[in-house]
Design a protein around this nucleic acid. Sequence first.
RNA 1: UCCUCCUUAGCUCAGUUGGUUAGAGCACCUGACUGUUAAUCAGGGGGUCCUAGGUUCAAGUCCUAGAGGGGGAGCCA
Length: 502
Amino acid sequence: MDYWHSINKEFFYFCILKILSKMKRTKIIDILKSVDYGRETLVMGWVRTKRVSKNVCFIALNDGSTINNLQIVVDVNPEIEEILAKIHTGASVSVLGKTVESMGSGQSTELQCLKLEVLGQANPDEYPLQPKRHSLEFLREIAHLRFRTNTFGAVFRIRHAMTFAIHKFFNDKGFYNIHSPIITGSDAEGAGEMFHVTTLNIDNPPRTEDKKVDYSQDFFGKQTNLTVSGQLEAELAALALSEVYTFGPTFRAENSNTARHLAEFWMIEPEMAFYDINDDMDLAEEMLQYLVKYALDNCREDLEFLAKRRAEEQKQKPQNERDEMELIERLEFVINNKFERLTYTEAIDILKESKPNKKGQFVYPVNDWGTDLQSEHERYLVEKHFKKPVILTNYPKEIKAFYMKQNDDGKTVRAMDVLFPQIGEIIGGSQREENYDKLYSRIKELDIPEEEMWWYLETRKFGSVPHSGFGLGFERLMLFVTGMSNIRDVIPFPRTPKNAEF
RNA sequence: UCCUCCUUAGCUCAGUUGGUUAGAGCACCUGACUGUUAAUCAGGGGGUCCUAGGUUCAAGUCCUAGAGGGGGAGCCA
């Protein structure tokens, strides 16, 4: 303290400025890792909490580099009190200080403040975040600020790690990343309603003689949409580069109001020449286990925070709705156990004989072969019967897409769905039909406009090979890894029916 | 789109069979406190009870419609 008053103040500030101008910001994660005490350090971040008493003030500072806060210790004097008065939860500050071993018990390293500067105030009457627990619903309404919470900081650091791990996984295996188009001219992908893309004036579009909208005058000279899948384009690339993957945004204009659907989401679609359905399943399983392991190895603290959060959430639930495993245990379980593989037909047999079916507890009783499985059935298989991820194969062709490889039985196709606890279908894929005649007849049967598919069909005409692929919903993977329960909380700015805020 | 639940202070929520001036914790402001950990203690300010109708002597509470949100279902990833 005496030091402050005994030296020439102007000279002191001059020195500080000199230091500041040269000094680089250190990230909080690096300060907390180090035991190199006594070092002058510059940090910047956002204030989580401020605790003042007569002589000393503590500021918990977070810069997003880690879930942990750095404790700033400020010796209170009249001069600094003026600055402290401007600091509330949410304010951004720059702190020049000395790293010291903490006298308190909550942390090992802290920063003894030498100079404190407010970069941006946060008026506490207006700033909506408080140092307490908020509901996820409320935070969704302030998605521009929710990054500043522990939960969303953790979620989005993990999201980055998963993005990176996906590219690393494929790169290490010799796959090539393909940028499939976002705007597509075909309406034949068969994966649901599409968003139209147009530059026509929708209030008064040009019309043809029969009063229909004249898309020949539109930007692309035809009707265009946002992509619902990059699969067909990825197949074209795979039939030359052997192993490729796409990882891009996907748009579905379905009126789906659930905790696992988005109108705009990110999908990973690998597509591999010379892979049959079993190779496809092997890759899907290997990839999911790799990604989960990557999260466990690289996002430990964030996962532990989310695990604790989830455990508290579980306590609020009635006993029969609680998870049997806590988050990290569940992740470890997935990487340590083989997925259960069975056919659709075998699944139907299990479901027919299951207790809930016999007791009439299913809303949709299982009687006949050929109907699609409802989520209650999938959940029974995954959560009750096998208690582990399940891969279902060989579905009836009527309930699956036109491009799937037809089996010799004439009834089923080589589809595969990977089902996870809580979230249901995380991957949907198949071996693709490489036989031109079979593919062509299926297109005709389903009235898919041939003129839009000529390029796809040509790959089966010239050097066709067996090939396979699948689609992994990135946000569904995020749900599983983070243990969050609503898909709107694992993407920064969710787009859902009636909601495109931010 | 269907079923169901919810909407009360900036936030999280209580509010009894319809009955006087609608409460608590947190946040904020003031004061106390020599190192706190979502600090603590004392005091203070803060309300379009989602909106519009209706029933009633009387509505936060009951009824109808609408808006927004949650959970479940369908569609799927």
